[in-house]
Design a protein around this nucleic acid. Structure first.
Lengths: 335, 335
DNA sequence: CACCGTTTGTACAACGTTGTAGGCAACGTT
DNA sequence: AACGTTGCCTACAACGTTGTACAAACGGTG
C-alpha cells in the first residue's frame, strides 16, 4: 500500500537515486526523465518516509512548541500563531503541554529533544537557567522572562513598560486606589514580578504611594484565581477604585467577583488585564488590556529558530523584543 | 555530543545488540552485564534515536490530533485531554490545525500521515467519507458527527438527545418563544443539523410550533457570530424569551448582544449553550450548558486508536458514544 | 561423561533515504 | 584525433536501530 523510492524507480525505469533527485529538485535530470519519474510518483501516490530522510539528513522538518497549558487562552492563541508562522518554513509543529512544573518542564525539554525534532520553542514557567544548561544541543527559543541569562535565544516583551503604561492610564482616569491582582512570590512568577514592578513605577511617578494591602497574590493565573483574589481584596475591606490584573483570565475572574459583590465596572471599579485574549472582547463589560503582538512573537520565535538551525549553533544567544499596544474598552470607559 | 548504541557498547565492552536488548528490556541479560551497560548509558547520557527506531520498527510513538482551530476553547480543552490520555500510552501528540476547510482537511489527513505518526485523531468539519476512503491506511479515529458512514472508528455524543433535553429544560422554565442560534445549511454543519433536530423535537413534544423566524444561522461558531446572529434576531423584531445557542462561544456572543440591547438574562431572555467551556463558568451571567465529558471523549478516542494499532487493522469500524450532562447556571435561573 | 535444553551473547542484514564517487555520452576546443 | 568539460545517470555506502540466525557457555539429567 505504501510505496518507496524503489517502487517508483522500477516503474519509471530509472535508478533509485534519480527518483530521489527528482523529489529533491536536483537540476541535472533530463526533462523527459523527470516527467516519467513524476508520473510514476503520481500514480503510486508516493510520499517520502520522513524518518528515513531524517536518519540520513539529520533534519525532520518538525519543531516543538512547549507551553504550560493548552486551554489557557493566551497559549492557545499563541500556539495558533506559531503553527501558522512555522508553516511558512515548511515545518510541522508538535505541541506539548508541560503543566508548568519544573520537573515536568525539564522532562519535556530534555525528553522531547530525542532526535525527533529539529528545534524547540519553549514557554517555561519554572525552568531555571541551570536546568537549561544541562540539556544537549537541540536549538531552543524561549518565550517570556523566566530565564534571565540563559544560553538560549529569547523573544520577550517589555513587561515593565507595558504594566507602567496601563497603570498610568488608570491614574489618568482619576483613579487613586489602584489594586494589583496576580502577584507571585515563587520563582515561577517572573512575569508577575516584572508587571508588579511596572505597576509600582507608575504609582511612584504619579506620587501615589505603593500600598501593600492593595496587592493580591494569585497562585496561578486562571479565572478562578482572579475571582478568589478579588473576593479576598473586597472582604479585607480595601476599596479599590481600579484593578490591574496581571493577565486577562485573572481579570475575567475579577469581573465576576465584582459583579457578585454588586460593584459596577467601570463606574465603581475600573478593570484592566494583560494579553488581549478573545474572551475580553466579548465579556460584559469588554476588557481593557495590554495587547502583545502574538503574531509577531510567534514569527520572531520561528525566525530565531530558523537562523539557529541554518547558522552557527555556537553563536551567542540573541534576544528580540516584540511590540504591544494598549486596548481601551468598556472596563475603563463609561459608555 | 550525541551518542549512539555503538558508543555505549564500546564503553561497556559488549556488542551493540546487547545494549539494544538492555534498552528494550529484553530478559536474558546477565545482571552484571546489564549493570555495566546501564552505567555506560548513564555516563554518556545516551538516548535512542527515534527516527532510526521508527525506520526499523515501523512505530514512532507519536499520534496526531487534527482540529479546526486551536483557539476555539472547546478544541483547546479537548486537546488538553487528548494529550493527557495519550501520555498514558507513552505517546506524544502532534497537534495540527486544519482551519476547517475541506481541502485543508484533506491535506492534513493525507499529508500528515507521511510516516511520521502512528495514528490520527481527527475532528473534521468538512471532510467527506469519500475523501476519507482515498487515504492510505494510517489508523484514524474521528470525533463528532460529520462523516456518516465512513470507514473509520468514531467517538460521538448524542447531539440530538442533548439538544432535546436542554431545550426541554427551557420549556420547563415556562419559556415559549425559544430561539435557536447557530444553524448551518452547508455540509460542514453536521452538528448544527443534529442539534437543530433535537431542538425541533423538544418543541414538537411540548406542543409548541417550530417557528422558522426564531432560527438564526451562524456561518461559524465564534463569539462574533453569536453576537451578530442575536442582533439579527432582535432587530428583525422577534422577541424570544429564551435562546438555545449551538455552542458556548455563540452563547457568549449572544449574551453580549442581549446586554447591548438592554435585555436582562435570564429575566427577559434565558440563554443556554453547548460544550461547557471554562469561560461559561465565569461569564456574567454564568452560562447553562450541555457538558460533554471531554475527558471521556479523549480517552475513548485514544483507546480506539490503541486497539486499532495493536489489533486487526481491517476489522470493522467501531463507534463509541461519550456521555454528557446538563449544567444549570445563572443564565437560566433567577438568583 | 555424553547429551540436551536453556541462557547469554554476537554478527549480519535490513528499514528508506541521500551523499559521494564515478561512468558514459555528447559536446566543443585545441 | 585526442582532450577536457559538462550533463545525466548509476552503484554503493552510510545514517542508528532491531529482528533473525546462530554460537558459546552453562546447568541439569540419564
Amino acid at each position: 500500500m505504501r510505496h518507496r523510492l524503489k517502487d517508483v524507480a522500477e516503474r519509471a525505469g530509472v535508478s533509485v537515486k534519480t527518483v530521489s533527485n527528482v523529489v529533491n529538485g536536483y537540476v541535472h535530470v533530463r526533462p523527459d526523465t523527470r516527467a516519467r519519474v513524476e508520473e510514476a510518483i503520481a500514480e503510486l501516490n508516493y510520499r517520502p518516509n520522513l524518518s528515513a530522510r531524517h536518519l540520513r539528513k539529520g533534519r525532520t522538518g518538525v519543531i516543538a512548541l512547549a507551553v504550560p497549558e493548552l486551554d489557557i487562552p493566551y497559549f492557545a492563541e499563541l500556539a495558533r500563531h506559531v503553527v501558522t508562522a512555522a508553516a511558512d518554513f515548511g515545518w510541522t509543529v508538535l505541541i506539548d503541554q508541560t503543566g508548568g512544573g519544573r520537573e515536568q518542564e525539564r522532562v519535556v525539554a530534555s525528553g522531547i529533544t530525542d532526535h525527533l525534532i529539529d528545534g524547540l520553542i519553549f514557554s517555561p514557567l519554572a525552568l531555571t537557567a541551570e536546568d537549561l544548561a544541562s540539556l544537549d544541543g537541540t536549538p531552543m527559543v524561549l518565550l517570556g522572562e523566566r530565564i534571565d541569562h540563559g544560553p538560549a535565544d529569547r523573544v520577550v516583551i517589555d513587561n515593565v513598560g507595558a504594566a507602567r503604561e496601563i497603570t498610568s492610564h488608570l491614574i489618568g482616569l482619576g483613579r487613586r486606589r489602584i489594586a494589583a491582582v496576580g502577584s507571585q512570590r515563587t520563582d515561577e512568577g517572573a512575569s508577575a514580578r516584572l508587571r508588579l514592578a511596572g505597576y509600582a513605577d507608575a504609582l511612584r511617578a504619579a506620587g501615589l504611594g505603593y500600598d501593600e494591602t492593595l496587592v493580591a497574590p494569585a497562585p496561578a493565573w486562571h479565572r478562578a484565581d482572579g475571582a478568589a483574589a478579588m473576593r479576598g481584596l473586597l472582604t479585607s475591606g480595601v476599596r479599590p477604585d481600579a484593578v490591574f490584573c496581571f493577565n486577562d483570565t485573572l481579570a475575567l475572574g475579577a469581573l465576576r467577583a465584582l459583579h457578585e459583590a454588586g460593584l459596577r465596572v467601570p463606574e465603581d471599579v475600573a478593570v484592566v488585564g494583560f494579553d488581549d485574549i478573545e474572551d475580553g472582547r466579548f465579556s460584559i463589560p469588554t476588557l481593557s488590556t495590554v495587547a502583545p503582538d502574538k503574531a509577531q512573537i510567534a514569527r520572531l520565535a520561528v525566525e530565531l529558530l530558523a537562523d539557529r538551525l541554518d547558522g552557527d549553533r555556537a553563536a551567542p544567544a540573541r534576544e528580540l523584543s516584540a511590540s504591544y499596544r494598549l486596548e481601551f474598552r468598556e472596563s475603563t470607559q463609561t459608555p
